[in-house]
């Protein structure tokens, strides 16, 4: 008889972004990050399948998240659109963010 044990103690913060993140909406995004940072999550998961636009203001919130939530924070972006991935690559953020097709 086989034995399995699965345990999880990590804290995960999840945010879904829909539509366009520009300098105006980035302020809302940042407030949400600040609110979640209090919980000191280990992982930040961003569901971005329906995110159609992100400017540098939005990217700065991602940098802010990493700085605010601690360097141990693992950031996941689930299903970003091609143009969003390109912006992440141009600015090198793809080195610090895990781009994934799904988060389990």
């Amino acid at each position: 008889m086989s034995f399995q044990i699965l345990a999880e103690a990590k804290k995960v913060a999840k945010i879904t972004l829909i539509g366009e993140v520009d300098s105006l909406s980035a302020r809302e995004f940042q407030k949400e990050i600040e609110r979640l940072a209090v919980e000191q999550p280990d992982e930040l998961v961003l569901f971005v399948e329906n995110l159609t636009f992100i400017s540098s203001a939005g990217l700065r919130v991602l940098i802010f998240a990493k700085q605010k939530m601690g360097t141990h924070l693992a950031v996941y972006m689930v299903k970003p659109q091609e143009s969003v991935v390109e912006t992440l690559e141009k600015t090198g953020l793809h080195h610090s963010i895990n781009i994934v097709d799904q988060y389990l």
């Binding site: 700065r60 991602l62 940098i63 802010f64 990493k66 360097t71 141009k90 953020l93 080195h95 610090s96």
Partner: peptide, 10 residues
């Protein structure tokens, strides 16, 4: 752009 995010100038 190759610097880790936490060390990067904004």
């Amino acid at each position: 752009f190759t610097q880790p995010l936490e060390e990067r100038p904004i």
